[in-house]
């Protein structure tokens, strides 16, 4: 496995070039360009604010609902964008895979990298929202340096897994959007886990994204320090998903060109 990382390091310039390509190509010939990266979570926040904050009056605690929703939709949008593009990355780059040699994991990594660029752009909006709403920020915000990498790793791991299966079964193309849509409702994005009846909360904790999304919200808008148990556990789960996904991808990589 060390040699995999070594080779990946050797090809870092290609990873960078392909990430740039993905960012550039995505917004070429669009009028709004990079603004789309911001508009997605913003539009969702507006909708959810109207429906859940205004009509259904979901309790968002000490902060206004838009902040509550955006703080979760920000990492969530990163996750879904990355996974949707990542899952298709190997197949969409079939002409490269069947013609040139390079470590194939660069393709899903580039998709996640490009989505991370969007995440950074949308974070600017988040920062301005925090200021506009006078959200009290504490030192807990420093935990983003653990929570965000955890989200990144789990996203990469899942993308590795899905992009591999998609080479063999193109059904993934249809499965991913459906599952992501359902997954949104199974994750405390538009509600908080505290609002879920106690006896069902166990199911929520089976979702590896729950502690990450809620953790992100807790440390940014609520200024809450996460328990070290939670933070370590979710980091370990993310690492495990990353390594298993990577291993799975690498063990199938050699047949990619043959079945495409």
């Amino acid at each position: 496995m060390i040699s995999w990382f070594y080779e990946l390091w050797e090809f870092r310039e290609l990873l960078w070039a392909l990430t740039l390509r993905e960012i550039k190509v995505r917004y070429k010939q669009t009028v709004l360009g990079v603004l789309w990266a911001i508009l997605q979570p913003v539009a969702l926040t507006l909708i959810f604010t109207v429906v859940f904050g205004f009509f259904l009056k979901v309790d968002s605690g000490s902060v206004p609902y838009p902040i509550f929703a955006y703080s979760a939709l920000l990492p969530w949008t990163f996750f879904t964008t990355a996974v949707s593009f990542g899952a298709l990355s190997v197949v969409n780059n079939g002409n490269l895979v069947t013609k040139v040699y390079f470590p194939r994991e660069i393709l899903p990594l580039a998709s996640v990298g490009a989505a991370f660029f969007d995440f950074l752009m949308a974070s600017l909006v988040f920062a301005s929202l925090l200021i506009i709403y006078h959200v009290h920020i504490t030192l807990s915000i420093l935990f983003i340096f653990i929570v965000v990498p955890s989200i990144f790793l789990i996203t990469v791991g899942i993308s590795f897994f899905l992009s591999t299966i998609n080479v063999l079964f193109r059904d993934i193309r249809f499965v991913v959007p459906l599952v992501l849509q359902i997954w949104l409702y199974l994750t405390p994005v538009i509600y908080s886990s505290g609002q879920v009846p106690e006896k069902y909360r166990i199911f929520l904790s089976l979702n590896p994204l729950t502690p990450l999304i809620e953790g992100f919200r807790d440390i940014t808008v609520y200024g809450k320090f996460p328990s070290s148990f939670h933070i370590i556990l979710s980091l370990l789960i993310s690492l495990a998903i990353f390594f298993v996904g990577f291993w799975f991808f690498k063990s199938k990589e050699r047949i990619f060109a043959d079945v495409m």
Binding site: L14, W16, K24, V25, K99, Y101, F102
Partner: peptide, 29 residues
Amino acid sequence: IGAFIELGAGLHPELTGRENIYLYGAILG
């Protein structure tokens, strides 16, 4: 290895000639 197996495999139509030279160069290592 300079694998020159099929033309344009690494080129992207939406990018400029300049961008493609850098991209294709990176693909070729």
